[in-house]
């Protein structure tokens, strides 16, 4: 564990908490993509199957449980409790266009061809693109509430911090994992446009509004 890794995990945790707070306080999931949240739930379940096979540390187990539980809690709030506020019409991204290619890619490019390893790899690829339905929703509506922007910023920062963690680990431990590094870089790049808008608008107290 190094500072970048810890900061990345905390940023990830913060993102999830911000999202739950936003939905709970406003009693609404307007502006949030249910499609992205479904993909994140798939990511966590397929990645954290090792919860039942390998014990790494208490921290590791707890964080995995928090990520899985909170993502299902988010889905419950969106699709059951506050269903009426869900932005159906704008959330029209077809997730099978992400799920299928990621799965095929995981079958083709993985560290070892075993069920757990392929599913782990699938989750890494899928996570890289899971935010696309959310970014698509923001671009369709042309704006995002400030708390939604903070959520996206924290979620995007998490993988960027992991990139620093991987650079650190490469120099400090000689450790690297090309699949994670490649997917993490793609994931971070997808957020760049959003990061720019966040820094130039939201941090200056303006609403995140896309140019018409």
């Amino acid at each position: 564990m190094n500072i970048f890794r810890l900061a990345g995990d905390l940023s990830h945790l913060l993102a999830i908490i911000l999202l739950l707070i936003k939905i709970w306080k406003t009693r609404s999931c307007a502006g949030i993509s249910g499609k992205s949240q479904i993909l994140f739930a798939v990511v966590y379940v397929s990645r954290y199957l090792d919860l039942v096979t390998t014990f790494i540390s208490l921290y590791n187990t707890l964080m995995k449980l928090v990520f899985i539980t909170s993502s299902f809690a988010t889905l419950y709030l969106m699709y059951v409790k506050f269903k009426a506020t869900y932005d159906h019409n704008h959330d029209s991204f077809r997730i099978e266009f992400l799920l299928l290619p990621c799965f095929v890619l995981a079958l083709l490019i993985n560290a070892s061809f075993t069920p757990l390893e392929v599913l782990w790899t699938f989750s890494i690829y899928l996570e890289a693109v899971a935010i696309l339905p959310q970014l698509f929703l923001v671009s369709k509506t042309g704006e995002a509430e400030s708390i939604t922007s903070h959520y996206l910023f924290a979620l995007g920062s998490y993988r960027a911090l992991y990139l620093l963690n991987w650079i650190y680990r490469y120099y400090a431990e000689g450790h690297y994992d090309l699949i994670a590094i490649f997917a993490g870089a793609i994931q971070t790049i997808l957020y760049c446009d959003f990061f720019y808008l966040y820094i130039t608008k939201v941090l200056k107290g303006k609403k995140l509004q896309l140019p018409a």
Partner: peptide
Amino acid sequence: ANSDESKDEL
């Protein structure tokens, strides 16, 4: 190179 070491990451 997905050793148990890398599975420590989330």
